[in-house]
Write a protein that binds this DNA or RNA. Structure first.
Lengths: 336, 336
DNA sequence: CTGTTAGCGCGTTCAC
DNA sequence: GTGAACGCGCTAACAG
């Protein structure tokens, strides 16, 4: 591997001149610059990243931390973030926390090794402990959820989609179509994510003076299999509803699977709305009505925000909220 | 951020003793070790990755290069690779080549900056130029396809699934079920991936003495939208078939979409088999019969192979081929 | 068993 | 304009 010293030797110029020419920083005559650029090219010189990072504290890497790689929710986000970071010459390091708080803390701890310049962090559940761990990394960070801190914070930004509103939109759409017995299919009730979405569901019902029924809240685990199991149990135990709000597409698909297996027609017997609007919605029959959670945009803006903090050394906080958008397809029936 | 010098100062021992204690390399008395470990813990010492990499040439990172983040084909592969690498304390850097040969070369060029220890490289099309570029990185590499070189090679391994066989299995399954007019829905005919799969399709027909019909080979682009468009054109222009072998699930779903829109029943009117066996197959109605391409296993073994090269400094070549497995669901009808 | 020393490749003074 | 010299934090001889 060629170093600046090889270029230096080849051109007869000093190493520091080589650096100045290559980085376009400081004085360098045109002729020297030309000679250096040519020599560097011939030698296939590429700066050694570790050396550069050690000296300049710039790694050109951002960690993108997500709870679940197999969840399609994150694909568009990864894609959006990747494309923006790529424009800045930045690479993504994947942090995979496997939906585990313990693993999340481990990953954050490892970040103290300073191998990234910034962090985009997605979690299902922002505990105070987690926020503290994020703060301890002392890294420009964007979290893809909204976490209001008690204190004035200036170490992280929030780029997120209004979760309660997404569930509200889905529920309200069912209500508007004449449904009143609407089941809520969510994840673990203890997690922020599910709590927020449930809140939107609750609010929509309340606004229309429809009593919340404990038994209509079904808790699964954000997977298709889990939803199948939970929704089947619900029905087998005599649960009745004319519509389901599923907290993600995977669970919406699970519902559809159960309906098909049990001979229940969608949307004639049961209507289904899910949240996420991934490509899964286009595979089902009927195509599934879903609330777009703007994942690509979240990924893009999160990347823009970290890069802004990194490059401009911005210290004050910026938050951005996207409003989710209902995408109507054919899985909801109008009742009279 | 704490350094070994901080630990050194705090314990009164020299920096090298600190290193020996921390890395468990070389002599160090028990009492010194205890003092050092405690001090390191108190200071929250984490070794600086860039410094470590500069000195030891170990980055603890592997690049995983893929052509398309939104293609579900790769999710399981990423997941498999991530989990194995995680066990070794290695991180994944995502290389996203956007299905572009130019971008592939750019990414490989950047790797000369030595910011990873190894490379897992997926491509739709291994050109000699690409292979040369991979060789030029001089990095332990695994490609997720089989590329037989003219020379004896020792710089990369192949972990892949037998592509012609996958298409052969899909086609043969249709034939076994009495179909003879079987359409082939592939990607760009110039790409290795499509060529290989077409070869399996061709062979299956040949074995049963069924003439290959030019017009039954439909070329799209591996996306759902592209497949919709191509398959619809095929039908509208009078194309006739009783079965379709789609080169990936996305395209299989596209076919199903078209059939639904045109009032064609699956599998009664047209049978569909796809390759990949991602979760999309479980969303469709009927569930789609597909050939499992063992992506998780490919990811896992690819990771094991790179790690083996990195840690054991293995130089000779190892190749591993997985046989694809047919997963029968309900999208193929038996004809008599 | 421990400490001193000398780089890894690069960026940044600071003299010239 | 240019080059010499130093240090980022860590590792690996080597001498003690």
């Amino acid at each position: 591997m060629a170093t600046i010293y090889d270029v230096s030797k080849k051109t007869g110029l000093s190493a520091s001149t080589v650096v100045r020419a290559l980085n376009g920083t400081g004085y360098c005559s045109q002729s020297s610059r030309d000679a250096i650029l040519e020599a560097a090219h011939e030698l296939g010189y590429v700066p050694h990243q570790a050396a550069k990072a050690l000296k300049s504290h710039i790694t050109q890497k951002v960690m993108l931390c997500i709870p679940d790689i197999m969840n399609p929710y994150y694909f568009a986000m990864i894609q959006g973030a990747t494309q923006v970071l790529d424009r800045y010459g930045y690479n993504i390091i994947l942090g995979y926390t496997m939906h585990s708080p313990k693993k999340e803390l481990e990953v954050l701890e490892s970040l103290k090794g300073r191998y990234v310049d910034g962090l985009i962090f997605g979690s299902f559940d922002y505990s105070p402990q987690l926020i503290q761990a994020i703060r301890d990394t002392d890294l420009p960070t964007v979290i893809t959820s909204f976490y209001e801190s008690a204190e004035e914070q200036d170490f992280y930004d929030c780029v997120h989609v209004n979760q309660p509103r997404a569930a509200w939109i889905a529920t309200e759409y069912c209500l508007r179509n004449g449904h009143t017995r609407i089941a809520f299919l969510g994840g673990d009730a203890g997690e922020q994510n599910t709590r927020e979405r449930f809140e939107g569901y609750r609010k929509a019902l309340e606004e229309r003076d429809i009593a919340l029924e404990e038994s209509l809240a079904i808790h699964a685990d954000f997977t298709r299999e889990g939803a199948c199991h939970a929704f089947r149990s619900f029905l087998e135990q005599g649960g009745e509803c004319t519509a389901v709000v599923a907290c993600n597409d995977l669970m919406g698909v699970g519902c559809m699977n159960v309906c098909r297996d049990m001979g229940i027609r969608v949307p004639d017997d049961i209507s289904i709305v899910s949240l996420d609007n991934t490509d899964y919605c286009l595979c089902t029959d009927p195509p599934m009505t879903s609330v777009d959670m703007m994942q690509r945009q979240v990924g893009e803006e999160a990347a823009n925000f970290v890069m802004n903090r990194i490059l401009e050394k911005r210290r004050f906080q910026k938050n951005m909220a996207f409003s989710p958008v209902l995408v109507v397809r054919d899985s909801v029936k109008k009742r009279n």
